[in-house]
Design a binder for these strands. Structure first.
Lengths: 239, 239
DNA sequence: GGTTAGACGTGTACGGCGTATGCGTCCAGA
DNA sequence: TCTGGACGCATACGCCGTACACGTCTAACC
């Protein structure tokens, strides 16, 4: 019958009580961790390095964040706070959902490490705000809440998949210290060999016929438009 | 001017040469690593544990895989070998792409750790096979190679995003040792408090009105159908 | 106003990790 | 027959997350 601490981080964020005045709090720790991840990559984020940046001992962090897993959830929600949701919903659901998708993609580009955490949906304040705004965009179309979630989630799940493919490239470049041209230079001989040896007609067409350096923004918009086209059909046909 | 080893793993896989007969090779190491990841989760995969399973010393693995990063690429391609692509392409592009999407999803459920590696597209044999099969499905529709990639990638990127959201849940359950019901029991009080305090109309509607335990397979099919609807419009309208 | 329970920051230590390096051993090609 | 290189291994280094015990400070209580 002990009085367990709440299992959800968001219910556990404390404020100054009895004891020495704080020199640390979860918000500052989160900010330092995010800065570290942005600058040196997700693999560089360690409790020791975060503490080093803050001129504190590693263990002091645990007074405020519980564990590194907790910290990642705090980081994720903090970053969601950077989403620009002004003027949403505007009344044009398609434009709104497209803007949300672009914002999510922008966020992932600004913080390429986001994708590397698998999370259940967090319950932090910014995630709540995002959910409310998102569902508001697809309200008033005569759909029940499940159909509304279908519309919103389908667009955002496509976005997530698209962005993760993009970021695989970005993170690989960081890890190997090799940009795309260098990568091509390294893989070129191997690919040539493959094309000579085996029957890979489509790989060959990709290399010969495809756009040379497609603008990722353009590709994203083109595919997003297709997805939104698919969603449109669902409206006026509530299940 | 030294004779550098090829930078691509797939060009570096060696066969028995001079020296003692092998008791290890990259395929066996990959298989052991996959078994470990399947059973104990991606965080349990370490060179030491893999070696332990194989009754070898940790360092012996490096004779065959170069680094842990290399090993993850080998694991990913090996698992792609489990895709069932028989009868594809069938001539019905929509059915084929849907089948590919379902296969990819099935694969992620069988090996929930796949999503946790960010990778550039691997050049392994199974990835090559998958690319060829996938593009063959959308050939003959009067589209150029870029439009073909749009069709295929959009469906698969949606799938990837969908599955990763599902897997966040699965992996969280493994980490915390708590199933969804237990998770709900823990978060319930916090959510109740949120609903009382703040203005979260859509969260409230989700909890009250949404399907109680939606079948993920049904949700996936519903959303995939919407995406495919969107792709259909692109056909006959080659850019 | 004195006392004290509890918050705070820290030092030490444990068991894990990836992998660089150097060493004996074995065998195919010279 | 000789030998260079492939093979597996033991050791060691510098990281990691975090359990635990400790001294210190202060808000709340008598």
């Amino acid at each position: 019958m002990a009085d367990e601490p709440p299992p959800v981080i968001w219910a556990r964020l404390s404020s100054q009580g009895r004891g020495p005045v704080r020199t640390l709090d979860y918000a500052a720790i989160t900010a330092a961790a995010i800065a570290l991840a942005d600058e040196d990559g997700v693999d560089a984020v360690s409790m020791r390095k975060i503490a080093g940046r803050m001129d504190h001992s590693p263990m002091s962090l645990y007074r405020h964040v519980g564990s590194k897993d907790d910290l990642t959830e705090l980081m994720y929600d903090a970053v969601l706070g950077e989403l620009d949701l002004t003027g949403i919903p505007s009344g044009n659901w398609r434009a709104d959902v497209a803007r949300l998708a672009r914002e999510i993609r922008r966020l992932h580009h600004a913080h390429p490490w986001i994708a590397r955490f698998g999370h259940r949906p967090t319950l932090g304040p910014n995630a709540r705000r995002f959910l409310e705004t998102g569902l508001a965009c697809v309200d008033g179309l005569g759909l029940d809440i499940d159909a509304m979630m279908d519309l919103l989630s389908t667009a955002l799940q496509f976005t997530r998949g698209f962005v993760e493919q993009e970021l695989g490239e970005v993170e690989a470049q960081r890890r190997t210290g090799l940009d795309f041209a260098g990568y091509q230079r390294q893989t070129g001989p191997f690919i040539s060999q493959l094309l000579q040896e085996g029957e890979l007609p489509y790989l060959k067409r990709l290399i010969i016929e495809a756009e040379d350096a497609p603008d990722p923004d353009v590709v994203f918009e083109r595919r997003l438009a297709m997805v939104l086209d698919g969603l449109t059909a669902r409206i006026g046909r509530p299940s």
